[in-house]
Design a protein around this nucleic acid. Sequence first.
DNA 1: TATATTTGCAACCGAATGGTTTCATTAAAA
DNA 2: TTTTAATGAAACCATTCGGTTGCAAATATA
Lengths: 106, 106
Amino acid sequence: MRRDIFQAIADPTRRAIILLIAAQAMTPNALAEHFDTTRQAVSKHLRILTECQLLKQEQTGREIYYQLNATKMKEIDKWLEQFRKIWETRFNQLDKVLAKMKTPKQ
Amino acid sequence: MRRDIFQAIADPTRRAIILLIAAQAMTPNALAEHFDTTRQAVSKHLRILTECQLLKQEQTGREIYYQLNATKMKEIDKWLEQFRKIWETRFNQLDKVLAKMKTPKQ
DNA sequence: TATATTTGCAACCGAATGGTTTCATTAAAA
DNA sequence: TTTTAATGAAACCATTCGGTTGCAAATATA
């Protein structure tokens, strides 16, 4: 059972759940109203998101509020970071080429 | 057949392929040497990555060089952007709370 | 030209995925 | 206390996924 953030955000329903919960903490029932699936299906998604720590639970009585773990979201950002460097370097190299082209011939 | 960038980067082998190709354009054969799978399996991954436009092909003779499409990679960044705003807001709100606590009582 | 190399595609297979229905547990409400 | 509500877990199912082997097409090399 692979369970990492990249696999977690691969599913469009789970991305929608993340977006909703990012705005405000919600219960499974409240969440399920936003989707065309059963509450149990949403619950499964919540389990997956919680297992990879993208969500945190906070129980109040019989209700469980799910809230976003922003720190974990940043891990995706960290993964992107290495590419950001690469593509910025690419652009710098392109800049150099363009700068050379603009340099008047001697 | 779902085929979007999020599904594409869900697989660890595909993320490794992206990383290798980001450093320099490569052929399927050269790529396959880095993995414990068959060339055909790597080829399948390349197909998926190309279909969602994360990679571009450049054919020279019978060899096909795959290179990263940095623009498409930025789409993941764009998706993260909306959360970045949210978590920065959260931090700002926290800052306000902390600032209030530090304010000497009147 | 005959042969070797590089590549993609199709068919197949076991495991994982996302969904459903059913049931058990726990807390609130009547 | 009995009933209702909120939730998670288990069993099951069709589809997708990632891998394999085998083959065909196209280009380079002997």
